[in-house]
Nucleic acid binder design. Structure first.
Lengths: 140, 140
DNA sequence: CTCGGTGCAAAGGGTTTGCATACAT
DNA sequence: ATGTATGCAAACCCTTTGCACCGAG
């Protein structure tokens, strides 16, 4: 099974990757599209999706999903968890204590499963939102 | 703020709840629809969605999402994690060691967040699939 | 009798796909 | 010159919404 398709490095691919990497948050495909258009005026949303998919397949970026059917892309590919603020929507990376995570995964493998990957997401209020606006929670 | 809307108990609501509870897996809305139609021939997909949503809002069932933009419904509302088999798609409940989970959450709250809920999902091969068919992995 | 629920179908909205053209190699 | 990537737009698909009718309370 050899790599028979010769992949090309296009401007669009580079811009999409650059936008995801420079994003301080965890951008959606549309976020990436909006930013990419500031650099490549004629880039299309389809191309953005195509290149995001390719980058994910190549392991260069990660995809996330928080149950709202909207994919979010993540430049950080190392093992980490996410904190999602129910009020402002902020998504923050968190590096979990490896001992804790290791214990959790060991617990799971004991059940006979082989585990490739995992996802840990905590939903709550970020420090800023907890102070200011306690009470009006975002639905979902 | 009082409960001004009087909610009614309909056959459709009861059937939807019954189907989710009796389901051995974590059914999608369509799964529930298919099963419910065996009991209530004329139930519509819209009604199934409506009642699933209501049951979730009332905390009687849970919703899950494994990144494939398809909602799955879960009769188990107590705290638990999920194992998803990449090969056969089986979704299995797992009760994590409370000490491990507690340690993980304590680690997170130390960062200043207030945590309401969390989700832990592990992806891999279930024991059955690991034996039989190693090699042909499901995409995603 | 009331008004919330149902069934049906159309609309939404994020993502994917098809196709002629552009361009990296 | 070759054939992959692009841009555009239509198709997909799960879910939500609108509306006239039904039926639980």
């Amino acid at each position: 099974m050899e790599q028979r398709v010769h992949k090309r490095t296009t401007q669009q691919l580079q811009v999409v990757y650059q936008v995801v990497c420079q994003s301080c948050s965890h951008p959606t495909a549309d976020d990436v599209y909006l930013w990419a258009r500031r650099i490549l005026l004629r880039i299309s949303l389809g191309t953005v999706y195509h290149n995001l998919q390719r980058l994910v397949d190549e392991g260069k970026i990660g995809v996330l999903s928080f149950g709202d059917r909207i994919a979010r892309y993540d430049p950080t590919t190392v093992d980490h968890a996410h904190l999602v603020c129910r009020h402002c929507g902020l998504v923050q990376d968190v590096v979990l204590d490896p001992r804790v995570l290791g214990a959790g995964l060991k617990f799971l493998t004991r059940s006979g499963y082989t585990i490739f990957s995992h996802s840990f997401v905590a939903y709550g209020l970020c420090p800023a939102c907890e102070k200011g606006c306690s009470g009006t929670l975002q639905t979902v």
